[in-house]
């Protein structure tokens, strides 16, 4: 097995997903299956090739950040989708804990 339990814990931590002990067994099995599928790419000579990041001729377009007015109705609609809110804000756990 290429991906071991320690590695799986690191990935889950990076992805911010809890996985329980029971799930770990099947994830290890499945992820290693996927990993072994990719071995075929190892020996291909790709020198001189550019990576395809997207299929169109996309280019970055820079513009100023301009605050545009937004109706109360839309603001409320967006806030109403949130699991928790207070006044005009999304409510989340405290990020900075000042003692």
């Amino acid at each position: 097995m290429f991906i071991k339990e320690k590695e799986l814990n690191i990935i889950a931590d990076l992805a911010k997903i809890y996985i329980n002990e029971k799930e770990k067994v099947s994830y290890l099995l499945d992820l290693n299956k996927m990993e072994s599928l990719t071995e075929i790419l190892e020996k291909i000579d790709v020198s001189g090739l550019e990576p395809t990041t997207h299929l169109t001729d996309l280019r970055n377009v820079w513009r100023e950040d301009i605050v545009k007015p937004c109706s109360r109705k839309i603001v409320n609609q967006m806030l109403n989708s949130a699991p928790a809110k207070e006044k005009n804000f999304y409510k989340i756990h405290k990020v900075i804990n000042v003692k």
Partner: peptide
């Protein structure tokens, strides 16, 4: 993995 796959995609 990712960078290599993108290059093979070009191929």
């Amino acid at each position: 993995y990712y960078h290599k796959a993108q290059k093979v995609r070009t191929l």
